[in-house]
């Protein structure tokens, strides 16, 4: 997670770059709300993922070959 002392990430730039990367055109009238939602997700991630996880902690997939 980002160190609070670090510079705030530019969420708008992230949204624009990532949307281009995944091929998601975002019409101008939706852009501000997408950025606001992405900023909210970043806040949630900062709280929820602040503590490190043990290296041997794996997820619990249900895929059964």
């Amino acid at each position: 997670m980002s160190d609070p002392k670090e510079k705030e990430p530019d969420v708008g730039a992230y949204v624009d770059a990532m949307a281009e990367m995944v091929g998601l055109p975002i019409a101008p009238q939706y852009r501000d709300a997408v950025i606001a939602n992405m900023a909210r997700t970043a806040q949630v991630a900062a709280l929820a993922l602040a503590e490190p996880l043990a290296d041997d902690l794996v997820a619990a997939p249900v895929f059964r070959p």
Binding site: L24, T41, A48, L53, L57
Partner: peptide
Amino acid sequence: MAGALTPAAWYIQAQRFRR
């Protein structure tokens, strides 16, 4: 739309925390 742009690292860490 914002969900589709979620960094994979966040998603995977959330899945690991779930366990």
